[in-house]
Design a binder for these strands. Structure first.
Length: 458
DNA sequence: TTTAATT
């Protein structure tokens, strides 16, 4: 049974009512072949897949397991779920139907404001009158101490709703600071968002981030996967998972920075051009795109660059060619980019590619402006993409396109690009301000783009 | 006071 034998080969078959199990708390050094013996004793395995990060290939510490027979799954679940702890893990193994098997999270409750000493059993007793409890977990720290909250999964949405109606806010547990909280648990998406906000908070980034997340929350998952991909592509594989995790977090933070950075110009500066000689006090757009959001969260600089310096203070004037002192705040800002990029090349460089659909930074097309409006820029930092290029020139007027040229084979910037404004005086202002602008060891070359046919002999 | 993880 449970196999279709053709000649020498047996093709495994599974019951039509087979259950896919989710296996959690697997040590990351165990692969399918290592796990197989553990599960085989409950029946013939139809499929066993360790979950890996799709880009980094990193073992996620969990797996999916389908037995040929439904019965085997039930046996394995009752024998193993929370029943033993695999070596190196500090929580017991999880063996339960995968999320894909049942309905989603619409029957799972978050219970907050529990007393710290309330156990799973206490929580069960509190909720059992409302229906069938499929799962009940008190959240605990690494030391095993309760975090004062729990997840309770009912067998139906209605049961969960009934529990909310009766228990939410109804009583205050001993030791809790306010009345019991009973609500549906966050969805995955909500969790991701909350984590990002937490991270943002820790980094001291607030306003534009929040806006960004509101507007582009849907991209967050894709973004993180992109980040992982970029990381893998740029840095190769990691010797240990922690390094990869740390790098992934770096990636996220970097994404936040650039995200905040590129998001801002939508607001103040669009549609205005900045006449030469005007100070940043009157033109906040000069300060904003370069300022806080991009740089307040930079990791400590190794070279003594004062990160605490208020980069975006009023009084910035973007004329380094005329006043090329190192104390120019704008220049420091770009120097900051450079240093950051040098220290975290993978984190910085490819970010602008991480938002392929980002409406605020992707010009519809490479549009060329009228004659005298198009600039050629050379000696761009390797890390600069279209978004950063646009960012750099936004203070001078309406940028209708910004294009960094990229090597087709390596996907690396060729360190030059083109920026088009919608009027010649913006272009001239940009040349005045940015030609000779020092970034790192290089100085930008900013000049009018040659007309297409200029140096063609015929 | 929102999990470690869900192809």
């Amino acid at each position: 049974m449970n196999g279709l034998t053709i000649g020498q080969n047996t093709i495994p078959m599974k019951d039509h009512d087979a259950i896919k199990l989710f296996i959690g708390q697997i040590p990351r050094n165990l692969e399918e072949k290592d796990l197989k013996p553990l599960f085989e004793e409950f029946g013939k395995i139809y499929e066993l897949t360790v979950l890996k990060d799709r880009f980094t290939g990193m073992h996620k510490g969990c797996a999916f397991l389908t037995y040929c027979a439904r019965e085997s799954a039930l046996k394995a679940q009752s024998a193993l779920h929370e029943q033993k702890t695999l070596p190196g893990m500090n929580r017991p193994i999880q063996v339960k139907p995968a999320d894909s098997e049942g309905r989603g999270e619409d029957r799972k409750l978050f219970v907050g404001m529990l007393g710290k000493q309330q156990s799973e059993d206490d929580v069960r007793r509190l909720f059992e009158t409302f229906g069938q409890i499929e799962e009940c977990t008190v959240l605990r720290g690494p030391d095993g101490a309760s975090k004062g909250c729990a997840f309770v999964k009912f067998s139906s949405h209605a049961e969960a709703q009934a529990a909310i109606n009766s228990l939410h806010g109804g009583q205050t547990m001993p030791g809790a600071s306010s009345s019991l909280v009973v609500k549906f648990a966050d969805t995955d998406k909500e969790r991701t968002l909350r984590r990002m906000h937490q991270m943002a908070g820790q980094l001291g980034i607030f306003s534009p981030m929040t806006i960004q997340f509101g507007a582009y929350g849907a991209y967050s998952h894709a973004m993180m996967q992109q980040q992982a991909a970029l990381m893998a592509a740029t840095q190769g594989s990691y010797l240990n998972p922690m390094a990869a995790i740390a790098a992934a977090q770096m990636q996220q933070m970097a994404a936040f920075n650039v995200n905040g950075l590129v998001a801002t110009p939508m607001t103040p500066s669009s549609g205005t051009s900045t006449p030469p000689g005007i100070s940043a006090t009157a033109v906040p757009s000069i300060a904003t795109p370069i300022g806080v959001n991009g740089f307040s969260a930079l990791p400590p600089q190794s070279n003594g660059q004062p990160t605490s310096e208020p980069i975006y203070t009023n009084g910035i004037h973007p004329y380094p060619a005329q006043s090329p002192t190192v104390t120019d705040p704008l220049q420091q800002a770009y120097a900051g980019v450079q240093h950051y990029a040098a220290a975290y090349p993978a984190a910085y460089a490819p970010i602008s590619q991480a938002f392929p659909q980002q409406p605020t930074i992707i010009p519809q097309q490479q549009r060329e402006g009228p004659e005298g409006c198009n600039l050629f820029i050379y000696h761009l930092p390797q890390e600069f993409g279209d978004a950063e290029l646009m960012q750099m020139f936004l203070p001078f007027g309406n940028v209708i396109s910004a294009k960094v040229f990229v090597d087709r084979a390596t996907n690396q910037s060729k360190c030059f690009g083109f920026v088009s404004f919608d009027n010649p005086s913006s272009a001239q202002a940009a040349i005045q301000a940015m030609n000779g602008f020092q970034i790192g060891m290089k100085r930008l070359k900013v000049q009018l783009k040659r007309p297409k046919d200029a140096n063609r002999p015929y």
